[in-house]
C-alpha cells in the first residue's frame, strides 16, 4: 500500500507546538502539521468539523476542532482527560515537540454563511463548548455580518469552565454577551450564575425573532435546552446541535456512531434539532 494518501485511516503527522491548561484536567493542544498533504487537507476546515487525534502507541479518538483557519495554521483541540481514557491520558502526558497524528477534517459543519444576519445564541455545556469556540471566533472575526451574539456557557463548577482567558475579549466585542453558570457556585465565585443552563437560558430569555441557536453538551442538556427554547418560542428548525458518537473511523464504516439509519460522523455531527427529533432512534 502506498503512502500517497490513498489510505483514509492514515493520520497526518504533526508535532505538539503548544499546550495550555484550560480547566481542571482540560488542556488545549496546539498541533503543527508536518507535511504539505496534511496542511492542504486542513487548509479550509469549517467550524463544527472534527478530527481524530493520535497519541501514537495509545490510540486515536475523535475531537471537535476548536480552532479556525483564519486565526493561524495551528490546529487546536480542547481535550478533557478521562480517568480511564487510554488516549486522553496518553495525550495529556505528551510534552512540547512530541509527535501526534491528526486524521480529518471530518463531518459536516455549522452553516456559518446561511446564518449571517441572524442573532446567534451559542449554548455550551462543559467540554461541549470546544466545538462552539470556532463558531464564536468566526462571528467575532466577521462581526458586522452577524446579528447579536449571546453566549451561554455552563460547567459543573468554575474549575471546569473552558476558554476563561477569552471571556474578556468576547465581552468587549460589540453586540456580544456572555452569561456563565455553574451547577454549584463556590462562595467566592462572582463571575456568573448558579444553576442549570436551562435556568440561565430562561432568565436571559433570548428572542426567537430572526435567531438561531447552536448547542453542544451532554445529550440530556441538549434535550432540556430544546424544551426551554420551545418555551421561549423557538422552532426546532431554529436550533442547531452537534452530537457525539465515539466514532472509530469517522468515515461511515466502523458502525459505532449510528443513530438508527444515520451516522453521526458522516450525516453530522451538526444537525438541525428538527432532524434529531425525527430520528428513528433517540440520541438520549
Amino acid at each position: 500500500m502506498s503512502n500517497d494518501g490513498t489510505n483514509p485511516m492514515r493520520p497526518y503527522l504533526g508535532v505538539l507546538a503548544g499546550i495550555k491548561e484550560l480547566a481542571a484536567d482540560i488542556r488545549l493542544f496546539q498541533i503543527e502539521l508536518q507535511n504539505a498533504t496534511g496542511k492542504a487537507a486542513f487548509a479550509d476546515y469549517m467550524p463544527g468539523q472534527f478530527a481524530f487525534v493520535s497519541a501514537f502507541g495509545a490510540g486515536e479518538a475523535p475531537f471537535g476542532i476548536t480552532s479556525i483557519p483564519g486565526r493561524g495554521e495551528l490546529l487546536e483541540f480542547a481535550i478533557h482527560r478521562h480517568p480511564h481514557g487510554k488516549t486522553t491520558n496518553a495525550l495529556h502526558s505528551l510534552k512540547l515537540g512530541d509527535p501526534v497524528g491528526v486524521r480529518g477534517p471530518l463531518g459536516n459543519w455549522f452553516p456559518m454563511d446561511e446564518i449571517k444576519g441572524k442573532d446567534i445564541i451559542v449554548i455550551g455545556g462543559g467540554i461541549g463548548g470546544a466545538p462552539l469556540r470556532p463558531v464564536i471566533s468566526t462571528i467575532l472575526d466577521d462581526r458586522e455580518n452577524y446579528g447579536g451574539l449571546t453566549i451561554l456557557w455552563a460547567a459543573r463548577n468554575p474549575s471546569l469552565l473552558i476558554f476563561t482567558e477569552e471571556y474578556d475579549s468576547w465581552r468587549a466585542t460589540p453586540r456580544t454577551d456572555l452569561h456563565l453558570t455553574v451547577d454549584q457556585r463556590p462562595p467566592d465565585w462572582r463571575e456568573g450564575n448558579e444553576g442549570l443552563i436551562t435556568t440561565l437560558l430562561e432568565n436571559v430569555g433570548p428572542s426567537p425573532k430572526n435567531a438561531i441557536t447552536i448547542t453542544c453538551g451532554p445529550p440530556i442538556m441538549i434535550h432540556f435546552v430544546a424544551l426551554s427554547l420551545r418555551k421561549l418560542g423557538f422552532t426546532l428548525d431554529q436550533m442547531l446541535v452537534t452530537l457525539e458518537g465515539r466514532m472509530h473511523c469517522g468515515i461511515g464504516k466502523c458502525g459505532r456512531c449510528n443513530l438508527g439509519d444515520i451516522f453521526v460522523c458522516v450525516d453530522g455531527p451538526v444537525f438541525h434539532h428538527s432532524q434529531v427529533a425525527g430520528l428513528m432512534e433517540s440520541f438520549l
Binding site: A58, G59, H248, C249, C254
Partner: peptide, 10 residues
C-alpha cells in the same frame, strides 16, 4: 457484521 474498533498495540 462488520463493526470494528481500532487499537494501538505494542
Amino acid at each position: 457484521c462488520r463493526c470494528f474498533d481500532l487499537r494501538d498495540e505494542p
